[in-house]
């Protein structure tokens, strides 16, 4: 059910209203799902919109066999003003909402929006942020884990994605929603797939199915016949990620799609001169690995990161070995 969680008058027009959708008993296990932290991450919003339709259909009896057993909340939009502009941040404050948590109850608009989400999710057991890659990059679908304990890895296995990736510590991490959830005792997961400003249905299908499976596995949803399942997943720690940097500045043409497993020395793409088109460099994989992130925007400086490899020799399998 769509509920208003914040209503702030604006200086010149209609009020700014923040919504959440909520289903199920308030005293059960609780899951909060958030998208729309940046104003251009469309895949996340499409995923949460589809999940909301699915949960509404269950509630209305249109999805036979399903029952909602836990408390499920979805927050489709957080940085409302950024969504009005289609940019990752609202130009008025240049504030990345995912560097604004926990925010403040009374403060500048971004702080108030973020704090509203924090207050409404504080009692949850699990938190999922749905997003896509940073500007100019594309991500293969994967789960990011903060402080990945055995419990969290096991939970991640029911999200239906093949790749788990540890979020590296950095000083700004404390301002992220997922890290704040971690500090508040929730199990946080960040699902990332695709690129900003683009709706990619194949990725969204994967994320929707994964989240539904997670809800079944954790008993938030039940089905008369189907049960949630745990999937094979390889998990990569942060210190063994391998960024691939260009040697030359120019235009980067990728030879492979994101999500490809590559061998050491395999060609990933090439850099060509912007003015004359001549070949400046063949970019090759420095290690064997899985291309989890790939440059989308072709203009690159010298030493620009064009891909991130998750190195195969350091991955840890979590299924079927447990």
């Amino acid at each position: 059910m769509k509920q208003e969680i914040l209503n702030i008058p604006t200086p010149f027009g209609e009020p700014l209203v923040l919504y959440k959708n909520q289903w199920g008993p308030l005293d059960g296990e609780a899951l909060s799902i958030v998208s729309g932290l940046q104003g251009d991450r469309l895949n996340g919003v499409m995923v949460t919109s589809r999940l909301s339709r699915f949960l509404n259909d269950i509630e209305a009896g249109r999805e036979t066999g399903y029952q909602i057993r836990g408390n499920i909340q979805i927050f489709p939009i957080v940085n409302y003003k950024a969504w009005e502009t289609g940019n990752p941040v609202w130009n008025f404050d240049s504030q990345d909402a995912d560097l604004t948590f926990p925010g403040m109850e009374v403060g500048e608009l971004a702080e108030t929006l973020c704090n509203t989400v924090i207050r409404h999710t504080a009692e949850s057991d699990y938190g999922i942020v749905v997003q896509s890659a940073e500007k100019h990059y594309e991500d293969a679908p994967h789960v990011k884990l903060i402080d990945p304990s055995r419990t969290r890895r096991n939970l991640a296995r029911s999200l239906g994605l093949a790749v788990g990736r540890e979020v590296a510590e950095n000083p700004a991490l404390v301002l992220n929603l997922a890290k704040q959830w971690d500090l508040m005792g929730l199990h946080p997961f960040i699902l990332s797939a695709g690129k900003p400003q683009t709706y990619q249905p194949q990725y969204c299908d994967l994320l929707v199915d994964g989240i539904v499976n997670f809800m079944r596995s954790q008993g938030l949803l039940s089905h008369t016949r189907e049960k949630g399942s745990q999937q094979e997943m390889s998990f990569f720690d942060a210190e063994h990620e391998c960024p691939v940097l260009t040697r030359e500045a120019g235009l980067f043409y990728s030879d492979i799609p994101v999500g490809t497993a590559v061998d050491k020395g395999q060609k990933l793409g090439e850099v060509r001169d912007l003015y004359e088109g001549g070949l400046l460099e063949e970019v090759t994989a420095p290690e064997e690995g899985f291309v989890v992130t790939l440059r989308e925007y072709p203009m690159v400086h010298e030493q620009e990161c064009v891909a991130v490899l998750l190195r195969e020799n350091n991955r840890k399998w979590f299924w079927p070995f447990g």
Binding site: A168, E169, N170, P171, E241, P243, L245, H301, Q303, C305
Partner: peptide
Amino acid sequence: GPHPDKSL
């Protein structure tokens, strides 16, 4: 401060 990312 220490940052794992290698973006420009």
